[in-house]
Design a protein around this nucleic acid. Structure first.
Length: 453
DNA sequence: ATCGGCTCGCGCAA
DNA sequence: TGCGCGAAGCCGAT
């Protein structure tokens, strides 16, 4: 009964249920789409071993997931293929079914002694979990495995900025920054386990589903834990040394490139943080800077979407920012563009166009350019709420890591969230502005343009 | 090239 | 109550 390696603060008993009879322990995999460093999976294994029952992992593939398209589904199902293989090798059966979780999971849970689910912070993920928990008779446990420090442990309130969350994360970091043990599975899944779709061939799988195909797969990005780990190793060995000083240079791609994998839960932030921390004596500044982004700022985004029900609307940004933006609504705009012109990167700003094209073609925009890109949209719209809506829509359509808590916090930041007031400028008011001249002053922009034709 | 000022609200010291 | 300081700013002065 070695449970102590899964901190109690990661585990929430949702309800006790009616009976504990059943043929297996069901783990509904949703946010943590991986077989390693997965606290929810490992809790399911421990509880199944106690009961001498096998573990079944169920996944509901919702073809109608809001704003998801072929780009996202390709990356996600590539990941599920590897996850299924790793689970089956460990004697855990993986069941993939098409449909919304509210329909798929209660069906699978009818024969379960216990339902374990992982945790998600976005509105839809919370609604899903509520609906699933309400619909199943067996006991239900929710296990957090998407952040290093569980959101409520870090802070009970909506934090103002990174600086107010940072000390709260730091004092809890050591406690949660540890690997989780992987005990052998006592009862392997046998024949008679529930049937599902074949995850081994993602392309064939997606051909059979009615998904939005308006955006194609992102070249150069292969989904899955193996690809994620390869990137992590390369970053720890070669990228980290230049990270502290070079990560903002748009023409270089010094970042880890892990955000799509983190978004789909294909790699654990705990695994990433532990691997990067190995090098803290050789590259202390880079390790510090990276962990600040991976843990403090990423988990600030979770804090934002968890505590602010308007995280995906203009109304979610602070009052001082909205007031100052409103006051400047009458300021002349240098240009306005249709959504199509924006999507195609056909504005008068070559840097913005290059950033847009980088995102459309490659599925990921450089981190610094994401800020500039969002700031410029404010300048090109009569009302900041329109800019907010379009920024989110474009981001979520083309970014592999779109629709992430970080996507919502990142867009909101451009409008003043998690930031402070600055001297007044036209259109922006006291919200921090960013101008093309700033890019030219600091970075090698001709090289960025050449890299994103 | 580098530096201070701009502006708001929190967290801490007093 | 006062003071320092912050997710990547700009601008003008030196």
């Amino acid at each position: 009964m070695a449970r102590d390696d899964i901190p109690a603060e990661r585990i929430h008993d949702v309800h006790g249920g009616e009976s504990s009879a059943g043929r297996y322990v069901l783990y509904w995999m949703q946010q943590a789409q991986r077989a390693d460093f997965n606290h929810a999976l490992e809790l399911a294994v421990r509880r199944a071993n106690e009961r001498r029952l096998p573990v079944v992992v169920g996944f509901a593939l919702d073809a109608g997931f809001p704003e998801a398209n072929l780009r996202h589904f390709t990356f996600m199902t590539e990941g599920l293929r590897g996850t299924a293989q790793t689970l089956e090798r460990r004697g855990i059966h993986f069941v993939l079914r098409a449909g919304v979780p509210e329909a798929v999971i209660p069906e699978l849970a009818r024969e379960a002694a216990l339902l374990v689910m992982d945790r998600g912070y976005l509105r839809l993920q919370r609604q899903w979990r509520q609906a699933v928990a309400d619909a199943v008779a067996c006991p239900v446990v929710e296990v957090e495995s998407d952040v290093v420090v569980p959101v409520e442990v870090a802070s009970e309130r909506e934090e103002l900025a990174a600086r107010t969350l940072r000390p709260k994360i730091r004092r809890n970091l050591e406690r949660f920054l540890r690997p989780v043990a992987t005990p052998p599975v006592a009862e392997s899944a046998k024949s008679g386990a529930p049937a599902g779709l074949d995850p081994a061939a993602p392309k064939a799988l997606l051909r059979g589903l009615r998904i939005n195909r308006s955006v194609g797969p992102a070249p150069g990005w292969e989904g899955g834990a193996a690809a994620a780990r390869q990137r992590l190793r390369a970053f720890v060995r070669h990228g980290l040394d230049r990270y502290a000083e070079g990560r903002n240079e748009p023409a270089d791609n010094i970042a880890s490139g892990l955000s799509p994998y983190l978004h789909f839960g294909q790699i654990s932030p705990v695994e990433v943080a532990l691997a990067v921390r190995e090098r803290r004596s050789e590259a202390p500044d880079a390790v510090q800077a990276f962990l600040d982004e991976l843990v403090v700022r990423r988990e600030l985004s979770m804090n934002f979407v968890w505590h602010n029900p308007r995280y995906d609307q203009y109304e979610g940004v602070p009052a001082w920012a909205r007031e100052t933006l409103e006051r400047h609504r009458g300021d002349p705009r240098e240009a306005t563009y249709t959504e199509e012109e924006l999507a195609q990167g056909r504005t008068a700003d070559p840097y913005w166009n290059a950033a847009q094209r980088q995102m459309v073609a490659g599925g990921k925009m450089h981190g610094y350019m994401r800020m500039y890109w969002g700031k410029r949209l404010i300048e090109w719209h009569r009302h900041p709420a329109d800019a907010f809506r379009i920024a989110l829509r474009l981001n979520n359509m083309y970014e592999l890591d779109g629709r992430d808590a970080n996507a919502f916090a990142g867009v909101a930041w451009c409008f003043g969230k998690h930031d402070q007031p600055w001297p007044e400028h036209p259109v922006f008011g006291k919200v921090r502005c960013m101008k093309p001249s700033g890019l030219e002053r600091k970075f090698d922009m001709p090289r960025y343009l050449a890299a994103n034709p």
